[in-house]
Design a protein around this nucleic acid. Structure first.
Lengths: 248, 248
DNA sequence: TCCTTTCCTTGACCCAGATCAAGCGCAGAG
DNA sequence: CTCTGCGCTTGATCTGGGTCAAGGAAAGGA
């Protein structure tokens, strides 16, 4: 999700400030009102499963509030997070029956949903929506591939720094804070969830967070609130070649 | 790419047996002839770069013949393969200027290409194409996420088995061999390329391939040709929960 | 108030896979 | 036919991160 779109999302339809614009930034008013009639909201508590892997999925939607995770689990219990869903992120696969992943609410989550069939029908008729979804999916694909580099080739310290910089980038985009004297992020994940995202154990995550703190790369305010005094420094630690990077 | 589509691809337009159907399985003849006028072919030698990361990319296309890889590289030289392109796979990002990855020909590769701008224009006008591309991109996203589990949580032995089963699945789909008495695959990758795909070193790849051979899970015929006497056994070794799996 | 639970930290030790190093085998060049 | 180089294998050793284990701290709940 690009900055400009996020801004548009903020000034979007009053009932659902993010979703309409996120799904289709260029819909005309007819299409907007059709979307309006179709939509409904659902709230999930922290820890609740939104979708189980293998489940039949009869809706698609966007996260409006809160944070959800996409995870895959092997029979023996090893789990890997494959996506992090922040407000404005889309959930669901138009044209697919089932979900391949577990989707779980990390905090309380509000979703804006559409029943899948009518949504798919509308997608067929309104090219803009399909086009927008293609762009969003390409963004997700880029993010997934960037994460493959993190998982396959980075050290534990670099992995932590990568995760923090991605979360920092996304939350500064959403909150639009200038961040001249450092960025503060509210870490929405437990150490275990971070470990599942990074392909590490929670002990290693804890140790590396402590190490980054000891070395002055980050400042902890409690367990979950993290201050990043120097973003450049963090990106260096992450081994990122450019400050830019892809939308996640 | 689904089995049914691959079959359709095989009986598709004579000049380019795979591409038209791959891009749009449901185009009517007008659209097909427009595609026909736009297309051109390019051949790349083994080892040649098709696209450099960061390059402006003025075309999109499909692999018709040969194998190409998608890789990401850090400044210090660590590299991670993020995709494997077999015949019928699509290359390029409609709506994007540059490529985020290096695309390299592993064998001799024939690509069927379209200049990006006209292709994008056509995409706007023919919803089927956009829809088809969305489906293909969703497949790639699923494959990327499945790979995240491999990279983040599997052991070296499981990683090798996962790679072999994915290549076996894909090549049996393409070649349509029944494979009752085992599957034979022509490994199109060096040990180093396999290592880059799996987030390992080439020594570890070599050792684990030897171990799988010793344990009778695979049979080597030279360095590159691999026989899989029992596919179920291999999938077990890969730690895959189901024999099914996603299209890659 | 104390107790329980959940999340986190830190230490001690171990092992899978990395690193360093040597050598094999085959294909193409001379 | 030998030489050379590349891809591959295998051995020896090292180490980053996993595993096991012991608490600490903060947030409810009784």
């Amino acid at each position: 999700m690009l900055l400009s779109d996020t801004l548009m999302a903020k000034e979007g339809c009053s009932a659902c400030p993010i979703r309409h614009r996120a799904v289709c930034a260029r819909c005309d008013s007819d299409e907007l009102s059709r979307l309006e009639e179709m939509k409904y909201y659902r709230t999930y508590e922290a820890g609740q499963h939104i979708i189980w892997s293998g489940d039949r999925m009869d809706f698609v939607g966007s996260v409006v509030k809160g944070i959800a995770t996409l995870t895959q689990t092997m029979e023996d219990g090893r789990t890997q997070m494959v996506g992090l869903l922040l407000p404005s992120d889309f959930v669901g696969r138009p044209g697919r029956e089932g979900s391949a992943y577990d989707v779980t609410a990390t905090t309380e989550v509000v979703m804006c949903c559409f029943r899948r069939k009518p949504f798919e029908r509308m997608m067929e008729e309104t090219p803009h929506v399909a086009h927008r979804l293609l762009q969003m999916t390409l963004d997700e694909l880029d993010a997934a591939r960037e994460w493959m580099l993190v998982l396959g080739r980075k050290t534990a310290r670099e992995k932590i720094a990568s995760l923090l910089s991605i979360i920092a980038r996304r939350s500064t985009l959403l909150e639009q804070q200038a961040a001249d004297d450092g960025v503060a992020i509210d870490l929405p994940l437990t150490r275990e969830a971070m470990a599942d995202y990074l392909g590490l154990t929670l002990e290693t995550v804890s140790r590396q967070v402590s190490a980054l703190k000891r070395d002055g790369v980050i400042v902890l305010d409690g367990k979950r609130r993290i201050l990043i005094p120097d973003m450049e420094r963090l990106l260096e630690e992450a081994g990122d070649d450019s400050d830019g990077g892809l939308p996640v």
